[in-house]
């Protein structure tokens, strides 16, 4: 007889599984195994990092600013110029992605649903450490595909922690799932070396440290950094002056997430960058 869709497991325990486990039980998510690792006999491909984009995030006086360019590429071709790489996970968390969009968006979707599933089933919010770890596990589970040369994702995670003390928290990851908490700034993607240089410079010898910047000053630095990255990196869109396409900028603060309107970004750009 076919099993009822409702869980009739008499040994059922609500604490048994997380959301990815539930999806795997229903065959809605690829199994987390090393099966993606190259088998003996299959041609070995050298893994080429292909996270072609630029994402940056830094802490400033109003929380954490996360910015990403809008270009999506396939090899040398620009396939899309309005890609959204700065994704909201919940009311206080942002995942910004560099890497293969299909995998990255799916990961963000799983993470978003995991947080909600945890809150609904366990009747409490998932802690920041829990969310950071959940993302790490998704990356780890995906590593087999990365080794096969498909599906690499290198995200930044920005969130606001209320416990034990209210403060913004910022993490970056590597493709294997190691997480690194940073004090000031993080950048990922092919354009990130240039951005990292700029942010390091600004933080140490700029007019003031990144942490003390006001919102407009922070937006200005983010735009300048992305524009610089786009100067030498073909995979980074930067600011499209003729098409009027601006980077996507979101701010995480105590109150939640704010997406800066394009008009505001355009105004700051016109005044301080262009």
């Amino acid at each position: 007889m076919e099993r009822s869709p409702v869980a009739f497991d008499q040994n059922f325990s609500g604490a048994a599984g997380d959301f990815p486990a539930l999806l795997r039980r229903r065959s809605l998510l690829a199994p987390a195994t090393a099966s993606g690792l190259p088998q003996a006999g299959t041609p070995q491909k050298v893994w080429q990092p292909t996270e072609a984009t630029t994402i940056l995030a830094f802490k400033f006086s109003g929380g954490v600013l996360v910015a990403g360019d809008r270009r999506a590429t396939a090899g040398n071709t620009v396939v899309y110029d309005r890609a959204d790489k700065v994704l909201e996970i919940d009311r206080h968390s942002i995942m910004a992605i560099a890497g293969v969009p299909a995998t990255a968006w799916e990961m963000a979707r799983v993470l978003e649903h995991s947080c909600q599933y945890f809150r609904r089933t366990q009747l409490q919010e998932m802690s920041v450490d829990g969310k950071v770890r959940a993302l790490s596990k998704l990356l780890r589970d995906n590593f087999g595909f990365v080794m096969q040369g498909v599906g690499v994702v290198v995200p930044i995670f920005a969130t606001y922690d209320f416990y034990p003390k209210p403060e913004a928290r910022l993490y970056f990851y590597d493709a294997m799932g190691a997480q690194f908490e940073v004090t000031d700034y993080a950048a990922t993607g092919s354009g990130s070396p240039a951005v990292r240089g700029i942010l390091y410079y600004e933080n140490n010898w700029g007019a003031k440290p990144l942490r003390e910047l006001g919102e407009d000053e922070a937006v200005s630095i983010a735009l300048r950094a992305l524009d610089t990255a786009a100067e030498s990196d073909t995979s980074t869109g930067g600011v499209d002056r003729s098409g009027k396409i601006y980077p996507l900028i979101k701010i995480v603060s105590h109150e939640g997430i704010t997406t800066l309107p394009e008009s505001k970004i355009a105004a700051v750009f016109k005044e301080t960058v262009a």
């Binding site: 869980a7 609500g14 539930l22 999806l23 809605l28 909600q116 599933y117 089933t121």
Partner: peptide, 17 residues
């Protein structure tokens, strides 16, 4: 608890897929 879990699981997988 079992019925609540079943309802959440069904809704969450539907909402996800």
């Amino acid at each position: 608890e079992r019925l609540r879990m079943a309802a959440i699981e069904l809704a969450s997988t539907e909402g996800f897929t």
